[in-house]
Amino acid sequence: MSYLSRSPWLLHYDASSCNGCDIEVLACLSPLYDVERFGIINTGNPKHADVLVITGGINEQNRQVVRNIYDQMPDPKVVVAVGICACTGGVFRECYNVVGGIDCIIPVDVYVPGCAARPESIIDGIVRALDILEAKKERMGKPGGTGPAGSPAGGAQ
């Protein structure tokens, strides 16, 4: 039984997004889209979270913050980059203060494109991430499976 992917807890962090994707992530919680039907709960605590949803690109200031949040999350964990800024830096990629997409700091499992990403595609991305989460959990139990947090092999790239 897939106990983990039936009730994944989600942590949302706004890296340097314009808010567009953030409010679409929040809109997923509202009655029209209602991700709670998948057992998904939005938490504010990295220690409780299985899925890290990041919107916006990495900038010089939040580099360490994102790294810290990722490191605090227990294994197994998956990262979903929501919106084109989180994938590549988007329209802001040339700005001096932007480092790039999320994947230059931490491994990303699912990329959700769009500006702003639509709630449907965000839900699709998260549901896909749950399969990866389940696979990671299985691998963890086996000898020679993927190591603990922070190892680059954690990302399905």
Binding site: E60, Q61, E94, Y96, N97, V98
Partner: peptide
């Protein structure tokens, strides 16, 4: 505002 570069607007540059 803590930025990557000191006084970025005085001498704008791009990635």
């Amino acid at each position: 505002i803590r930025t990557a570069k000191k006084n970025p607007f005085a001498d704008p540059s791009f990635r």
